[in-house]
Design a protein around this nucleic acid. Structure first.
Length: 433
RNA sequence: GUGGUUGUAGCUCAAUUGGUUAGAGCGCCGGACUGUGGCUCCGGAGGUUGCGGGUUCAAUCCCCGUCAGCCACCCCA
């Protein structure tokens, strides 16, 4: 008998599930502010939904198997292919732009590390049928507002914003040939994680992006902020034109008052091959955790998956790293009481009255608990206290003789006798008070 | 998948160079307090020292394997 969940999988005890619920509620409420509608798809998909796009090597990272109908299947590692299929199937009847979000549980067969499990939940927001920069800005603003709703500010989280079209033009301008572009992307992507020796080593041998050099790549990777980038783009009108979309995206965010969260930074490339334009990631400001959120524009994917030409952009935000950051920042809401009233009784003869009254309260939507095994009153109140409950009601022979019960406010310690038949009204009145 | 590192009670951590019965705080349970919670005091339960093997008179400690966590790769949700 296994005593632990599988590696990379989580048990959600009530306190853990409370945090998860808090995260999901916040996600849903902010997505709703932007007019996004929730959808879902199957957690199990045909394997080739993923291999067609990413190649066979992705299989090593998937939970895949052959089902009893001899189908090659996989637990979904991401939502975008499912979304692309769903949208493509009904592209003709859906009003554009489509604003959809989902909170899928995703799976990945990889060695786990902190912030990276084999299973997680991810908020996915996608905007389909809009090619303009305002669409990108809308998504980035949504991501930022989600984090703001969790109590995080620009000192806590940073959006790093790039555009592959701009990066591509800059690389081209420095002499990178089309054949060396993906290698150059790869190096830009990891350049700030490389040690100096590794950079020197790269520089010492000719690479496929010649005549551009490693120091060209280093220069580009050091561009920080829109103003800096804009001055780099001023070298040619073609370069300048390539930055138009990113400029409008940035300026839109600025007009929303969100520019203080955003750093233009071309080292954000993102591994997924299907991104075609603006890409962004969100990190904790101290950069001690993995990316909290990532996304971008993927204008060709729906065509590739479903033969429908629709521009699209989206992002994903996982619950694991976000949860760690919230814990670090003390933004985990305290657990509230699970019940409103604890009913205690003195003798067995009092019990039927407790059952009657408790049920009346429950019918009135009051959360009630009582001892299921007769115990000393002190113990019953001790249990009530550990439940963090507001009111205790004591039913005993003395009170019953007068047709009353005792109601005690466990916060203040004050108590009084009230008529038995007024319990529900009294509780409801005091709960609001 | 590769390399490194860690593993003692539910949690956080102790335990002389390998040496009797592996301890403490918090938490949990019980009592003081048989019609009143929190505070205090007292008591109790809880460990195959991750697991398996080896060295030794003797292993929590040294060695090997394995599992799990963490870190760096690979890869990226």
């Amino acid at each position: 008998m296994q005593t632990q969940a599988l590696p990379g999988f989580r048990d959600f005890y009530p306190a853990d599930l409370a945090l998860r619920t808090h995260i999901f509620q916040t996600w849903r409420s902010v997505a709703a502010r932007y007019g996004f509608e929730e959808y879902d798809g199957p957690p199990l998909e045909p394997l080739d939904l993923y291999t067609a796009k990413s190649g066979d090597e992705i299989v090593g990272q998937l939970y895949n198997f052959t089902d009893k109908g001899d189908r090659q299947v996989a637990l979904r590692p991401e939502m975008t292919p499912t979304l692309a299929r769903m949208v493509a199937a009904q592209a003709g009847k859906l009003r554009k732009p489509i604003r959809w979000f989902s909170i899928p549980q995703l799976f990945r067969y990889e060695r786990q590390q902190r912030g990276r499990l084999r299973e997680h939940f991810q908020l996915n927001c996608d905007l389909i049928g809009e090619a303009g920069p305002l669409g990108d800005a809308e998504l980035i603003a949504l991501a930022i507002d989600v984090l703001r709703a969790f109590g995080l500010g620009p000192g806590d989280v940073r959006v790093r914003l790039s555009d592959r079209r701009v990066l591509s033009k800059l690389l081209q301008h420095r002499g990178v040939p089309p054949s060396g572009m993906s290698r150059a992307y790869e190096i830009i992507d990891k350049i700030e994680r490389l040690r100096k020796e590794q950079i020197d080593e790269l520089s010492s041998r000719p690479d496929v992006f010649a005549p551009a050099t490693v120091s060209d790549l280093v220069d580009i990777s050091r561009i920080r902020g829109w103003d800096h980038l804009e001055s780099e783009l001023a070298h040619s009108s073609e370069l300048s034109k390539s930055g138009g979309h990113l400029k409008e995206t940035y300026e839109s965010l600025s007009a929303m008052g969100l520019a203080e969260f955003v750093d233009v930074d071309l080292t954000i490339v993102r591994g997924l091959a299907y991104y075609t334009g603006v890409v962004f990631e969100v990190f904790d400001a101290r950069r001690t955790l993995r990316a909290i959120c990532g996304g971008g524009r993927y204008d060709d994917l729906l065509d590739a998956v479903g033969g429908v030409q629709l521009p699209a952009a989206g992002f994903g935000m996982g619950d694991v790293v976000l949860g760690e950051l919230l814990r670090e920042k003390g933004q985990i809401p305290p657990g509230g009481a699970s019940i409103d009233v604890f009913m205690a009784y003195i003798t067995r003869e009092d019990l039927p009255h407790v059952l009657t009254l408790a049920h009346q309260l429950r019918d009135a939507a009051v959360r009630v608990e009582y001892a299921l095994t007769p115990q000393a009153v002190g113990k019953q109140l001790k249990l009530a206290d550990s439940r963090n409950v507001r009111f205790a009601v004591v039913v005993g022979p003395d009170e019953r003789a007068r047709d009353e019960i005792l109601i005690k406010d466990l916060r203040s310690g004050s108590q009084e006798s009230i008529p038995m038949n007024s319990l529900a009204n009294t509780i409801k009145a005091r709960m609001n008070g």
